[in-house]
């Protein structure tokens, strides 16, 4: 069980954090480190691509919520890319669909950044 994290610069000041694998209590610190590093460097507009994520639990959601809180303090935003029905269901039942912008593809998520 592992998570692969790929960070790349996109248009303007935006960065894409592409995740692949499973985000659970064991792997979520790696995701948190990547997001924290970007924010510490002053990048507050992020797209987190969950297209290749097969599983996420509350610790993973906690990392995403923490990242969103931090970038919003600086007027930034976090949009998600997700089409996996099982992953989207978790955002639905927790009400996080109302907090995150969730998009079907990366260009749409990028375009919707503040």
């Amino acid at each position: 069980m592992d998570i692969k994290v790929n960070v790349r610069k996109s248009a303007g000041d935006a960065y894409v954090v592409e995740l692949a694998g499973e985000i659970d209590v064991y792997t979520s610190p790696k995701v948190k480190d990547a997001i924290t590093e970007l924010i510490d460097q002053g990048h507050y507009n992020l797209v987190i691509n969950l297209e290749k994520v097969r599983y996420i639990d509350s610790t993973g959601l906690g990392v995403l919520i923490g990242g969103l809180k931090r970038v919003r303090e600086h007027g930034g935003s976090v949009n998600l890319v997700c089409t996996n029905p099982q992953i989207k269901k978790i955002f639905d039942i927790t009400g996080l669909v109302k907090i995150f912008g969730i998009f079907d593809d990366e260009p749409s998520a990028m375009k919707a950044l503040v």
Binding site: D57, S58, T59, L61, G62, I90, I93, T94
Partner: peptide
């Protein structure tokens, strides 16, 4: 808190 979120998920599923 996150623990509460986890238990909320359990109750939902």
């Amino acid at each position: 808190h996150v623990g509460g979120l986890g238990l909320f998920i359990i109750q939902s599923l």
